[in-house]
């Protein structure tokens, strides 16, 4: 065969959307959406220009944070945040365990399964902030409302992952224990618990980390913690104090991340 008979050009065949008409329609659709979406942004450039100076001050505040002048507020916010984080994680995880077990299809009866799954769904669908708004309205301002918010959010997170985990456990081990004539409690204790315990500890530590981060936010709507301090600092245009608070938050998150990965290795 002579070399001349081979094609001289090659085009990569489409991988996902194979029909060229659909492909073009999709591309045109994306472009139209982007044009429409971008046109809705209404930017007041003079305001942005004026804001640049403030932005610069914020960056300077970040580089030269002021820990001292508002230290009393910062430390109080931090203490609230940290205590709120720990108590809400403990309570949230404690409540999540029965709900998580109840939401696992392979070990819970049908009606319990339905109830537990709907609790999880409600807790996951609502933003922490929205829950916080309601709880602040009910329980008054302060960290107690924050504690309730984070506990509630923890339930949705931990119970869901725990239930999914239990549903994925090795069924042969459960059968083996059940075949010895063990009761339901004994099955959970001997066959389920050993398989999901390491994951549960890992998830709880991860949630501790998330709860701390969230505790820095819910203060904005009055649920106590470092978020309230931060909100005040930004409202007063005290960017050096705001920078200090953000740096503290970042540092604690970093410490928590390294600490929890270390702790997880240690516990396994």
């Amino acid at each position: 065969m002579s070399a001349q008979s081979y094609p001289t050009s090659w085009k990569r065949p489409a991988q996902i959307v194979k029909d060229p008409r659909w492909r073009i329609a999709l591309q045109v659709g994306i472009v139209i959406y982007l044009i429409l979406a971008i046109s809705t942004i209404d930017v007041n450039w003079t305001r942005v220009y004026e804001g640049l100076e403030r932005g610069q001050r914020f960056i300077m505040g970040f580089l030269q944070p002021d820990f001292t002048s508002r230290w009393r507020d910062i430390s109080q916010g931090l203490v609230e945040s940290l205590t709120m984080t720990l108590t809400s994680t403990v309570v949230g995880v404690a409540i999540s365990i029965p709900i998580g077990i109840g939401a696992a299809r392979n070990i819970a009866p049908g009606w319990i399964y339905a109830i537990c799954r709907s609790i999880i769904a409600v807790s996951r669908a609502l933003q922490e902030i929205i829950i916080a708004i309601f709880l602040v309205a009910m329980f008054g301002f302060g960290p107690f409302a924050g504690f309730l918010t984070l506990s509630f959010a923890t339930i949705g997170f931990i119970a869901k992952l725990l239930a999914d985990d239990i549903e994925e456990i090795d069924a042969t081990q459960v059968e083996a224990i059940r075949s010895t004539g063990a009761s339901w409690w004994q099955v959970v204790n001997y066959a389920v618990q050993p398989q999901v315990m390491p994951r549960l500890i890992g998830l709880s530590l991860y949630r501790l980390d998330i709860n701390f981060r969230e505790s820095a936010v819910i203060g904005i709507v009055g649920a106590g913690g470092i978020g309230a301090t931060l909100n005040t600092a930004i409202d007063r245009y005290e960017y050096d104090s705001a920078g200090a608070i953000l740096l503290i938050v970042i540092a604690i998150v970093m410490v928590a991340e390294y600490g929890s990965s270390y702790l997880r290795k240690f516990l396994q």
């Binding site: 070399a3 081979y6 094609p7 001289t8 050009s9 090659w10 085009k11 990569r12």
Partner: peptide
Amino acid sequence: RKYPAADVQRAYQ
């Protein structure tokens, strides 16, 4: 993926 014609031909070969 715009290779010279000679390269494509050779690849087919």
